[in-house]
Protein backbone atom coordinates (compact mmCIF):
# COMPACT_ATOMS: atom_id res chain seq x y z
CA UNK A 1 0.00 0.00 0.00
CA UNK A 2 1.16 3.53 -0.70
CA UNK A 3 0.26 6.69 1.08
CA UNK A 4 1.05 8.54 4.23
CA UNK A 5 3.10 7.13 7.07
CA UNK A 6 1.09 5.04 9.43
CA UNK A 7 1.80 3.88 12.94
CA UNK A 8 0.49 0.69 14.48
CA UNK A 9 -0.42 0.08 18.09
CA UNK A 10 -2.04 -3.03 19.49
CA UNK A 11 -4.39 -2.13 22.30
CA UNK A 12 -3.60 -4.16 25.41
CA UNK A 13 -6.98 -3.66 27.02
CA UNK A 14 -10.19 -1.71 26.53
CA UNK A 15 -9.01 1.31 28.56
CA UNK A 16 -5.84 1.46 26.49
CA UNK A 17 -7.90 1.26 23.29
CA UNK A 18 -10.14 4.14 24.38
CA UNK A 19 -7.11 6.22 25.29
CA UNK A 20 -5.33 5.58 21.97
CA UNK A 21 -8.52 5.78 19.91
CA UNK A 22 -9.30 9.25 21.24
CA UNK A 23 -6.29 10.73 19.45
CA UNK A 24 -7.38 12.90 16.52
CA UNK A 25 -5.52 10.89 13.88
CA UNK A 26 -6.43 7.43 15.15
CA UNK A 27 -8.73 4.73 13.81
CA UNK A 28 -9.75 1.41 15.32
CA UNK A 29 -8.82 -1.68 13.37
CA UNK A 30 -10.50 -5.06 13.90
CA UNK A 31 -10.91 -7.49 10.99
CA UNK A 32 -9.78 -4.87 8.49
CA UNK A 33 -11.76 -6.20 5.54
CA UNK A 34 -13.40 -2.84 4.81
CA UNK A 35 -10.55 -0.55 5.89
CA UNK A 36 -7.83 -2.37 3.94
CA UNK A 37 -9.87 -2.08 0.74
CA UNK A 38 -10.63 1.58 1.27
CA UNK A 39 -7.00 2.43 2.03
CA UNK A 40 -5.83 0.61 -1.09
CA UNK A 41 -8.40 2.66 -3.01
CA UNK A 42 -6.78 5.86 -1.80
CA UNK A 43 -9.36 6.84 0.78
CA UNK A 44 -7.29 8.80 3.32
CA UNK A 45 -5.77 6.64 6.00
CA UNK A 46 -5.43 7.56 9.66
CA UNK A 47 -1.96 8.26 11.04
CA UNK A 48 -2.44 5.78 13.83
CA UNK A 49 -4.01 2.33 13.59
CA UNK A 50 -5.22 1.04 16.94
CA UNK A 51 -5.54 -2.73 16.60
CA UNK A 52 -8.42 -3.82 18.82
CA UNK A 53 -8.72 -7.32 17.39
CA UNK A 54 -7.43 -9.05 20.54
CA UNK A 55 -9.60 -7.28 23.09
CA UNK A 56 -11.84 -9.68 25.00
CA UNK A 57 -15.01 -8.57 23.22
CA UNK A 58 -15.72 -11.61 21.06
CA UNK A 59 -18.04 -13.67 23.26
CA UNK A 60 -21.48 -14.64 22.03
CA UNK A 61 -24.03 -15.83 24.55
CA UNK A 62 -27.76 -16.20 25.03
CA UNK A 63 -29.16 -15.91 28.53
CA UNK A 64 -32.77 -15.53 29.55
CA UNK A 65 -33.84 -14.31 26.14
CA UNK A 66 -31.00 -11.84 25.77
CA UNK A 67 -28.59 -12.48 22.92
CA UNK A 68 -25.32 -10.66 23.50
CA UNK A 69 -22.85 -10.55 20.61
CA UNK A 70 -19.40 -9.17 21.37
CA UNK A 71 -18.43 -6.51 18.86
CA UNK A 72 -15.27 -8.41 17.97
CA UNK A 73 -17.02 -11.71 17.30
CA UNK A 74 -16.25 -12.87 13.78
CA UNK A 75 -19.25 -13.15 11.47
CA UNK A 76 -18.51 -16.85 10.92
CA UNK A 77 -18.46 -17.52 14.67
CA UNK A 78 -21.83 -15.84 15.15
CA UNK A 79 -23.35 -17.74 12.23
CA UNK A 80 -22.08 -21.10 13.47
CA UNK A 81 -23.06 -20.49 17.10
CA UNK A 82 -25.60 -23.17 17.97
CA UNK A 83 -27.72 -20.90 20.15
CA UNK A 84 -27.89 -18.18 17.54
CA UNK A 85 -28.86 -20.68 14.85
CA UNK A 86 -31.75 -21.93 16.95
CA UNK A 87 -32.99 -18.69 18.45
CA UNK A 88 -32.19 -16.12 15.76
CA UNK A 89 -32.07 -17.77 12.33
CA UNK A 90 -32.66 -14.35 10.72
CA UNK A 91 -29.21 -13.24 11.91
CA UNK A 92 -27.61 -16.41 10.61
CA UNK A 93 -29.28 -16.08 7.20
CA UNK A 94 -28.12 -12.48 6.87
CA UNK A 95 -24.54 -13.43 7.74
CA UNK A 96 -24.44 -16.32 5.28
CA UNK A 97 -25.70 -13.91 2.62
CA UNK A 98 -22.73 -11.63 3.40
CA UNK A 99 -19.41 -11.57 1.54
CA UNK A 100 -17.52 -14.88 1.22
CA UNK A 101 -16.33 -17.61 3.58
CA UNK A 102 -12.88 -16.08 3.86
CA UNK A 103 -14.19 -12.60 4.60
CA UNK A 104 -16.68 -13.91 7.19
CA UNK A 105 -13.73 -15.52 8.99
CA UNK A 106 -12.04 -12.11 9.26
CA UNK A 107 -14.82 -9.54 9.56
CA UNK A 108 -16.21 -8.65 12.99
CA UNK A 109 -19.76 -7.73 13.94
CA UNK A 110 -18.75 -4.24 15.04
CA UNK A 111 -16.76 -3.68 11.87
CA UNK A 112 -19.63 -4.92 9.75
CA UNK A 113 -21.93 -2.33 11.29
CA UNK A 114 -19.25 0.34 10.83
CA UNK A 115 -18.71 -0.28 7.10
CA UNK A 116 -18.67 2.93 5.10
CA UNK A 117 -21.69 3.57 2.94
CA UNK A 118 -20.89 2.44 -0.55
CA UNK A 119 -20.89 3.91 -4.02
CA UNK A 120 -18.57 3.27 -6.95
CA UNK A 121 -17.46 6.91 -6.98
CA UNK A 122 -16.45 6.85 -3.32
CA UNK A 123 -14.37 3.80 -4.14
CA UNK A 124 -12.71 5.26 -7.24
CA UNK A 125 -10.07 7.97 -7.25
CA UNK A 126 -10.43 10.88 -9.61
CA UNK A 127 -14.13 11.63 -9.28
CA UNK A 128 -15.94 14.23 -7.26
CA UNK A 129 -17.28 12.66 -4.08
CA UNK A 130 -18.43 14.47 -0.97
CA UNK A 131 -17.58 11.48 1.20
CA UNK A 132 -14.01 11.33 -0.09
CA UNK A 133 -13.44 15.05 -0.39
CA UNK A 134 -16.15 17.10 1.35
CA UNK A 135 -17.47 19.87 -0.88
CA UNK A 136 -16.22 18.32 -4.12
CA UNK A 137 -19.70 17.31 -5.28
CA UNK A 138 -21.53 14.04 -5.95
CA UNK A 139 -20.71 12.32 -9.22
CA UNK A 140 -23.48 9.77 -8.77
CA UNK A 141 -26.34 12.30 -8.89
CA UNK A 142 -26.04 12.73 -12.66
CA UNK A 143 -23.76 9.75 -13.29
CA UNK A 144 -23.91 6.02 -12.66
CA UNK A 145 -26.56 5.67 -9.99
CA UNK A 146 -28.10 2.25 -10.56
CA UNK A 147 -27.08 1.19 -7.04
CA UNK A 148 -28.06 4.46 -5.37
CA UNK A 149 -30.39 4.92 -2.44
CA UNK A 150 -34.15 5.35 -2.78
CA UNK A 151 -34.60 6.63 0.76
CA UNK A 152 -32.69 8.94 3.10
CA UNK A 153 -30.24 10.27 0.52
CA UNK A 154 -29.39 13.93 0.00
CA UNK A 155 -28.17 16.20 -2.79
CA UNK A 156 -24.70 15.62 -1.34
CA UNK A 157 -24.68 11.80 -1.30
CA UNK A 158 -26.80 8.89 -2.53
CA UNK A 159 -24.63 5.99 -1.31
CA UNK A 160 -26.16 2.94 0.39
CA UNK A 161 -25.14 1.02 3.49
CA UNK A 162 -23.81 -2.40 2.50
CA UNK A 163 -24.40 -4.49 5.61
CA UNK A 164 -26.83 -7.42 5.51
CA UNK A 165 -26.40 -8.12 9.21
CA UNK A 166 -27.47 -4.56 10.10
CA UNK A 167 -30.76 -5.06 8.26
CA UNK A 168 -31.53 -8.23 10.20
CA UNK A 169 -30.49 -6.61 13.47
CA UNK A 170 -32.62 -3.55 12.75
CA UNK A 171 -35.66 -5.77 12.25
CA UNK A 172 -34.98 -7.41 15.63
CA UNK A 173 -34.70 -4.08 17.50
CA UNK A 174 -31.03 -4.62 18.29
CA UNK A 175 -29.29 -2.36 20.77
CA UNK A 176 -25.68 -1.26 20.48
CA UNK A 177 -23.44 -0.74 23.51
CA UNK A 178 -20.74 1.89 23.09
CA UNK A 179 -17.89 2.88 25.37
CA UNK A 180 -16.63 6.43 25.16
CA UNK A 181 -14.94 9.10 27.18
CA UNK A 182 -18.17 9.60 29.16
CA UNK A 183 -18.57 5.93 29.95
CA UNK A 184 -20.97 3.39 28.54
CA UNK A 185 -24.18 4.08 26.67
CA UNK A 186 -26.70 1.90 24.89
CA UNK A 187 -29.04 2.81 22.06
CA UNK A 188 -31.02 1.32 19.21
CA UNK A 189 -29.09 0.31 16.10
CA UNK A 190 -30.89 2.94 14.01
CA UNK A 191 -29.38 5.62 16.21
CA UNK A 192 -25.87 4.43 15.36
CA UNK A 193 -26.35 5.85 11.88
CA UNK A 194 -27.01 9.30 10.53
CA UNK A 195 -28.35 10.39 7.17
CA UNK A 196 -25.84 12.11 4.87
CA UNK A 197 -27.47 15.54 4.74
CA UNK A 198 -24.81 18.14 3.98
CA UNK A 199 -22.00 16.13 5.60
CA UNK A 200 -21.93 12.66 4.02
CA UNK A 201 -18.33 12.14 5.09
CA UNK A 202 -19.75 11.25 8.53
CA UNK A 203 -21.58 7.92 8.50
CA UNK A 204 -22.36 7.37 12.16
CA UNK A 205 -23.23 9.18 15.35
CA UNK A 206 -20.13 7.92 17.16
CA UNK A 207 -17.71 10.48 18.58
CA UNK A 208 -13.96 10.15 18.20
CA UNK A 209 -12.70 7.31 20.35
CA UNK A 210 -16.11 5.70 20.82
CA UNK A 211 -15.85 1.93 20.73
CA UNK A 212 -18.72 -0.46 20.04
CA UNK A 213 -18.40 -3.25 22.59
CA UNK A 214 -21.47 -5.38 21.95
CA UNK A 215 -24.77 -5.78 20.17
CA UNK A 216 -27.81 -7.09 22.02
CA UNK A 217 -31.05 -8.57 20.82
CA UNK A 218 -33.67 -8.97 23.50
CA UNK A 219 -36.69 -11.26 23.58
CA UNK A 220 -36.75 -11.90 19.85
CA UNK A 221 -36.76 -15.70 19.88
CA UNK A 222 -40.50 -15.61 19.28
CA UNK A 223 -39.77 -14.64 15.68
CA UNK A 224 -37.56 -17.68 15.02
CA UNK A 225 -40.31 -19.84 13.44
CA UNK A 226 -41.32 -17.14 10.95
CA UNK A 227 -38.42 -15.00 9.82
CA UNK A 228 -36.41 -14.70 6.64
CA UNK A 229 -33.70 -12.65 5.00
CA UNK A 230 -34.16 -12.22 1.26
CA UNK A 231 -31.22 -10.73 -0.62
CA UNK A 232 -31.59 -9.86 -4.29
CA UNK A 233 -28.24 -9.36 -6.02
CA UNK A 234 -26.67 -9.28 -9.45
CA UNK A 235 -25.05 -12.70 -8.99
CA UNK A 236 -25.88 -15.65 -6.78
CA UNK A 237 -23.17 -15.18 -4.15
CA UNK A 238 -20.44 -12.83 -2.88
CA UNK A 239 -22.21 -9.67 -4.00
CA UNK A 240 -23.85 -6.71 -2.32
CA UNK A 241 -27.61 -6.40 -2.26
CA UNK A 242 -29.49 -4.58 -4.98
CA UNK A 243 -32.34 -4.77 -2.49
CA UNK A 244 -32.78 -6.94 0.59
CA UNK A 245 -35.58 -7.62 3.05
CA UNK A 246 -35.50 -8.86 6.63
CA UNK A 247 -38.98 -9.97 7.63
CA UNK A 248 -40.50 -11.59 10.68
CA UNK A 249 -44.12 -12.34 11.56
CA UNK A 250 -46.03 -13.73 14.51
CA UNK A 251 -49.54 -15.13 14.21
CA UNK A 252 -52.37 -15.78 16.60
CA UNK A 253 -55.46 -17.54 15.35
CA UNK A 254 -54.57 -16.99 11.72
CA UNK A 255 -54.11 -13.25 12.17
CA UNK A 256 -50.83 -11.32 12.16
CA UNK A 257 -50.22 -9.99 15.67
CA UNK A 258 -46.66 -8.78 15.17
CA UNK A 259 -44.62 -7.86 12.11
CA UNK A 260 -41.04 -6.73 11.60
CA UNK A 261 -39.71 -5.40 8.31
CA UNK A 262 -36.38 -3.80 7.48
CA UNK A 263 -34.80 -3.32 4.07
CA UNK A 264 -31.27 -2.98 2.77
CA UNK A 265 -29.46 -1.76 -0.32
CA UNK A 266 -31.82 1.19 -0.65
CA UNK A 267 -30.74 3.71 1.99
CA UNK A 268 -27.64 5.06 3.77
CA UNK A 269 -28.56 2.88 6.77
CA UNK A 270 -30.70 -0.18 7.47
CA UNK A 271 -34.22 1.05 6.78
CA UNK A 272 -36.94 -0.05 9.15
CA UNK A 273 -40.50 -0.04 7.80
CA UNK A 274 -42.54 0.70 10.90
CA UNK A 275 -45.64 1.86 9.03
CA UNK A 276 -45.71 -1.33 6.99
CA UNK A 277 -45.40 -3.36 10.17
CA UNK A 278 -48.38 -1.52 11.69
CA UNK A 279 -50.56 -2.01 8.66
CA UNK A 280 -49.91 -5.78 8.69
CA UNK A 281 -50.96 -6.22 12.30
CA UNK A 282 -54.53 -7.49 12.62
CA UNK A 283 -54.67 -8.68 9.03
CA UNK A 284 -54.87 -12.14 7.59
CA UNK A 285 -51.64 -13.15 5.85
CA UNK A 286 -52.63 -13.10 2.20
CA UNK A 287 -51.63 -11.57 -1.12
CA UNK A 288 -53.67 -8.45 -0.56
CA UNK A 289 -52.19 -7.72 2.86
CA UNK A 290 -48.68 -8.29 1.62
CA UNK A 291 -49.05 -6.14 -1.48
CA UNK A 292 -50.63 -3.37 0.57
CA UNK A 293 -47.58 -3.36 2.85
CA UNK A 294 -45.22 -3.46 -0.13
CA UNK A 295 -46.95 -0.51 -1.81
CA UNK A 296 -46.68 1.49 1.40
CA UNK A 297 -42.99 0.63 1.68
CA UNK A 298 -42.10 2.42 -1.54
CA UNK A 299 -44.50 5.35 -1.19
CA UNK A 300 -41.74 7.83 -0.37
CA UNK A 301 -39.07 6.42 -2.69
CA UNK A 302 -37.03 9.04 -4.52
CA UNK A 303 -35.43 7.38 -7.52
CA UNK A 304 -32.69 8.81 -9.71
CA UNK A 305 -32.24 8.19 -13.43
CA UNK A 306 -31.02 4.60 -13.21
CA UNK A 307 -32.31 3.10 -9.98
CA UNK A 308 -36.08 3.36 -10.47
CA UNK A 309 -36.21 -0.38 -11.17
CA UNK A 310 -35.45 -0.93 -7.49
CA UNK A 311 -38.94 0.29 -6.57
CA UNK A 312 -40.76 -2.57 -8.26
CA UNK A 313 -38.00 -4.98 -7.26
CA UNK A 314 -38.32 -3.95 -3.64
CA UNK A 315 -42.10 -4.35 -3.67
CA UNK A 316 -41.80 -7.84 -5.09
CA UNK A 317 -39.02 -8.75 -2.66
CA UNK A 318 -41.15 -7.66 0.29
CA UNK A 319 -44.12 -9.69 -0.96
CA UNK A 320 -41.94 -12.72 -1.55
CA UNK A 321 -40.31 -12.49 1.87
CA UNK A 322 -43.73 -12.23 3.54
CA UNK A 323 -45.07 -15.13 1.45
CA UNK A 324 -42.06 -17.22 2.51
CA UNK A 325 -42.92 -16.90 6.19
CA UNK A 326 -46.65 -16.21 5.99
CA UNK A 327 -47.95 -19.61 4.92
CA UNK A 328 -49.52 -22.33 7.09
CA UNK A 329 -46.99 -23.95 9.39
Amino acid sequence: MNGSALSYIRAGNVADALHQGAQPTAAYFAGGTDLMQLWKLGVPRPRLVVDISRLPLADVHLRAGLLNIGALAKLSDVASHQHVARSHPLIVEAIFASASGQVRNMATVGGNLMQRTRCAYFRTEGFACNKRAPGSGCSALAGENRSAALFGASAACVATHPSDLAVALAALDAQVTVLGSDGERRFGLADLYRLPGDSPEIDTTLARGDLITSVEVKDAERFAPRSTYLKVRDRASFEFAVVSVAAALRFDGGVIVEARLAIGGVAPMPWRLSECESILVGRTPNAESFSTAAALAVRDAQPLAQNGFKIELLKRAIVRALETIGGPQ
Binding site: Y8, R10, F29, G32, M36, D51, V103, N105, M106
Partner: peptide
Amino acid sequence: IKSCLALAAS
Protein backbone atom coordinates in the same frame (compact mmCIF):
# COMPACT_ATOMS: atom_id res chain seq x y z
CA ILE B 1 -8.70 -15.87 5.14
CA LYS B 2 -7.81 -13.46 2.35
CA SER B 3 -4.22 -12.51 3.06
CA CYS B 4 -4.49 -9.36 0.91
CA LEU B 5 -7.03 -7.91 3.37
CA ALA B 6 -5.06 -9.02 6.42
CA LEU B 7 -2.83 -6.45 8.09
CA ALA B 8 0.43 -8.34 8.66
CA ALA B 9 1.07 -6.66 12.02
CA SER B 10 -2.27 -7.89 13.29
